[in-house]
Design a protein around this nucleic acid. Structure first.
Lengths: 133, 133
DNA sequence: GTCAGTGCAAACCCTTTGCAGAAAG
DNA sequence: CTTTCTGCAAAGGGTTTGCACTGAC
């Protein structure tokens, strides 16, 4: 049942629901919001008995991100975080632990974005609040 | 004259004004605001006849950033940008060209930061508006 | 049987590090 | 002379790529 809706979600996003894609989508897209790295996904997948590789995980995560099922978050030059919450929202980065937490869009009010000088369309507004203990 | 004030600026920041440090500081801190990468600094420096190496440029830029003379900007997994404008401000990232432009702090009004749930102190608020042609 | 998907290993880019030589006081 | 700085080359971390194998229709 869940598997069906996950597979459908992939099809709707324009991705063929293959074995690992469904496996990773089930891991990532059917539970609660989480921030994962490619490495953590490989570990979790293997714990669950899913046989896969780093390359396939990167391929899959990038496909998911490219079609809007995941959001990429860049906080520093370390690993890229993938956010399963694709709603418009912001992030708090805890520098000591290297972890992220979500900040719902309502928490911050940002005005003036429409007035910025630009050519083209805005594809994203990334806000990261860095905190240190 | 300029050299003296640059050297003094380094001393004030707690850095001993050595040959490349003064050379790079002169390149970066005495003109107008710019966004550079380690690689671009090496190129520019060599064009100006300054003999240096990638390692020294990284060392120097990191020292400058650590003591507040430059700001690091992370936009993606590519090279780190160093911003010579250390005032509180935000950025527009032009995805097609891979370039950054500044957005003065007054351009955006962000309210609600004080109310976010956190432990510790806020060490930075990074805002990157991504635009694509 | 065909063709996309997968996994391994190697390549890749950017950054940092180890160490010997150079420079500054 | 001593100590720090510099530069080269090698190592390092994270991601992507090339290519043969697998698996689904």
């Amino acid at each position: 049942m869940t598997k069906n809706t996950i597979a459908e979600k992939l099809v709707t996003a324009g991705i063929k629901p293959t074995r690992i894609r469904v496996a990773l989508a089930t891991m990532l897209l059917s539970g609660k919001d989480q921030h994962v790295t490619a490495d953590s996904v490989v570990s979790i997948a293997r714990q669950k008995g899913i046989r896969t590789s780093v390359a396939s995980v990167y391929n899959t995560l990038n496909q998911f991100a490219d079609c809007g099922l995941l959001k990429r978050i860049i906080v520093d030059h370390g690993p890229i975080f993938f956010d399963t919450n694709t709603d418009n929202h912001y992030h708090v980065y805890h520098e000591n632990s290297g972890t992220l937490t979500d900040l719902p869009a309502e928490t911050l009010q940002i005005t003036g974005i429409d007035e910025i000088p630009r050519t083209g369309t805005i594809t994203g507004v990334d806000v990261i609040i860095r905190v240190s203990a």
